[in-house]
Design a protein around this nucleic acid. Structure first.
Lengths: 111, 111
DNA sequence: TTGCTTTATCGTAAAAAAACGATTAATAAA
DNA sequence: TTTATTAATCGTTTTTTTACGATAAAGCAA
């Protein structure tokens, strides 16, 4: 039982894990692909493309929006979503930075 | 109820989601950091550093190993783990490729 | 051999995520 | 105004994940 055990995970570790969690479901990746492809904000069309119920898709959209990865605005009776590129780019940069910081130490393999 | 609904998610979407799921817990990110920092294969030292029980750490290691992201060999009574850089690099490359394929279409924002 | 260390596995409990149908709210169309 | 459409939310169930203690297996040290 070392002293280090008292420490929780770092903020960096938690932030990266939270971003990875967003990408950890095929539906959310598919949603991002649809949004990027349409370039415009889509709404119920996503439901048509995904093999999931409307309420489930809405739930996934909410998660992405809460995390700031997408923006959403109400457009009449429809809802309009698009990717928040600033946020997405930052997440990817942080993720790549982690990888590089690990990778830089690579010298030998032992198993 | 469109025809597309019958289709499941693509293999690419599932593979990327599976990798992201590996990174979706701070403990597993912390484990990778320890392995990279030590460069050599560690075993029970990971348990000392993480704020988790030995059995829980062992479980996380198993997940990482099953996915091929780390290698593990038995070294006497101890176990020896290290990062599978080939696999890790491929995962990161695929992940970046997804991002670029989305990003390339960025032109305007609508919301 | 006997005891100690190390780590994987088992069994289980608690928490979180995922999914759906039903309902509601809000707008647009008739 | 009445009806349609659209999408968020609610309530609930199922599944998955996370976590831990206890146990077992396997090797090392005495």
């Amino acid at each position: 039982m070392s002293i280090a055990k008292i420490e929780e995970f770092t903020q960096q570790e938690q932030d990266l894990a939270a971003f990875a969690k967003l990408m950890s479901h095929p539906a959310r990746i598919a949603i991002l692909k649809v949004l990027a492809a349409q370039n415009a904000c889509i709404c119920g069309e996503i439901v048509e493309v995904l093999p999931l119920a409307q309420s489930t898709v809405s739930q996934h959209l909410k998660e992405l929006k809460n995390a700031g990865l997408i923006n959403g605005t109400i457009d009449g009776p429809k809802s309009c979503y698009c990717i928040n590129w600033i946020a997405f780019e930052k997440f990817m940069a942080d993720f790549n930075a982690l990888f590089l910081s690990l990778h830089i130490q690579k010298e030998k393999t032992c198993c």
